[in-house]
């Protein structure tokens, strides 16, 4: 059974090197990187080889010593409560990185909610943020993961939307509210969306209404 699952999903065991809670119930989970990957790629992970793996975006940079993923603990979930309890030295099973959610140097806007920031953070840590604007939407200010780093690197190209708390610093409202308020959106830029399905669908519809060709919109949804 174990072998079947490991073979089927092409998983291999690794020992975790770090598990840091960076915000309530949100963790950066790491193990030693072997080989190369493209920022924006995903990886399959399971803590139990008898259980099917789940897919997570890599959030670390291509030159980082560790490969990391960002996850929030889903109450009653099969995997994340287990991952949250793990300590360095514990074993998990991972696939090779795969996927094609990648961004070139052409002008683009990256739009994420919550932990959907992960692939964009990986791209930025990998130095691939030329001509990019990042819009991150969260409910509360402590969910702007990696905020200090992103602010330093992206400066005014880092827009934060906080929907449930008025901070005085961030845009107060949802990402869709922010986008509705913009007078003009570039129709030539690409738009990359990452997060929950409903956000992706709402933002995509909004961009299309504002004249962005749908072929310019790329979405990664948490399945």
């Amino acid at each position: 059974m174990q072998l079947t699952n490991l073979n089927k999903y092409e998983l291999k065991p690794v020992l975790i090197t770090g598990n840091e809670e960076i915000s309530p119930n949100v963790f950066v989970f790491s193990w030693k990187r072997e080989g190369i990957f493209s920022p924006g790629q995903v990886i399959k992970i399971t803590a139990d080889p008898n259980e099917p793996p789940r897919i997570y975006s890599i959030c670390s940079g291509i030159n980082d010593e560790n490969l990391s993923v960002l996850f929030n603990v889903k109450p009653g979930g099969e995997l994340t409560p287990k991952l949250a309890m793990m300590k360095p030295g514990d074993k998990i099973y991972v696939s090779a990185p795969y996927g094609s959610f990648s961004s070139d140097d052409s002008p683009a806007t990256w739009i994420a909610t919550g932990t959907g920031i992960a692939p964009f953070y990986s791209m930025i840590r990998s130095g691939r943020y030329k001509n990019k604007k990042l819009i991150h939407g969260v409910s509360y200010a402590n969910q702007f993961y990696f905020e200090e780093f992103l602010e330093k690197v992206l400066d005014e190209n880092y827009i934060r939307c906080c929907s449930r708390a008025e901070t005085g610093v961030h845009f107060h409202g949802r990402i869709t509210d922010y986008l509705i308020g913009l007078n003009k959106l570039s129709r030539e830029d690409k738009y990359y969306l990452c997060g929950q399905a409903l956000m992706v669908v709402e933002v995509r519809d909004l961009l299309i209404r504002k004249g962005v060709p749908y072929g310019q919109i790329y979405a990664e949804i948490y399945f």
Binding site: V42, I55, G99, S100, F101, V200, Y214, G215, I217, Y218, A219, E220, I221, F223
Partner: peptide, 12 residues
């Protein structure tokens, strides 16, 4: 590329 713009599952 076209399927990606129609169906996000194409990425995974």
């Amino acid at each position: 590329e076209q399927r990606k713009s129609l169906m996000p599952v194409q990425i995974a």
